[in-house]
Design a protein around this nucleic acid. Sequence first.
DNA 1: AAGTGTCAAGCATTA
DNA 2: TAATGCTTGACACTT
Length: 313
Amino acid sequence: MSVRSRETDETTMLGYPCMNRTLRDRDIPLRCNRDMRKATFEERGLPYASELAVQNLTDLYQILRWNLDEDIRFYRCTSTLVPWNSQFDLADLPDYDDIELLAQRCGRLIERHDMRFTFHPDYWCKLASTDDETVRRAVDAVEYHADWLDLMELDRSPYYGINVHIGATYGDKTATAERFRGAVKRLSPGARARLTVENDDEESLWSVPELVEEVGDEVGVPVVFDYHHHSFTDRGLPYREAFAQAASTWGDVRPATHYSEPARLHDDPDAKPQSHSEYVADLPEWLREQSDVMIEAGAKERAVLEMQTADEH
DNA sequence: AAGTGTCAAGCATTA
DNA sequence: TAATGCTTGACACTT
């Protein structure tokens, strides 16, 4: 069992999302988010998608190694790891055998070193949409993220989560929650076991207590507590209580949380309240002790490095 | 080489 | 009814 439970391991892990700016800015850039436009996909098709996937997975391994060297054991991978995967099955790629080996190599590194690895499909992954075709595409998106985790041979657990928002109300929250639960039930066991749901960043959308009641408790999808988002949807709940509610949906698995601070606090007084600052200064100790924290800051991995340096003093 | 407009996907808001 | 922003990186075309 490679998945850490809250009881057996209290080691805090801080992570960062997607792009590693240090490695991207090297003379030979390392990145795992190579993508292409529609016209290019139509022109060059599967062979080029396959080529980009090989390059992305090759670099992903190097990024994970760099993370390990820096003692950063939590990473959110981009959804363009295999570009245009909504249009084909992984096994259709000409380099499928290589891709499988590269994915397994990444998965082994993650498991061997107790790293945590997650995905966060983009905002158009709308599982609760009123449009059936949109739901079908959203289910498909969660499925191909799950395929990648299967290819890496990582456990089917929210520890290696695929995190989504509900992200809309469609004018009727009760009906929307019901549609979301319906979509969850359509997922394959491997995709469903990895799905997590995060509180939104607008007052009218989905708060932690709403998600816990409508999704966490009803269909067992763990709730990812986003500290900054909670300021927009607090429903009168203090941060610690909202986190405790979200944490109750994770069973024995150590919860994942998100932490960021407003740009208007540090960088730009005119920024939107939702905008993230470049660096963060006040991660609460209680959050750190009880969860693995994804630091969502403009400076990405540098923000985490800075926090680790601060720890040493 | 550097700068600019645009990009698969949904929704909510505004004009 | 149609355009726009969302978050952001990067493609693709221009200069």
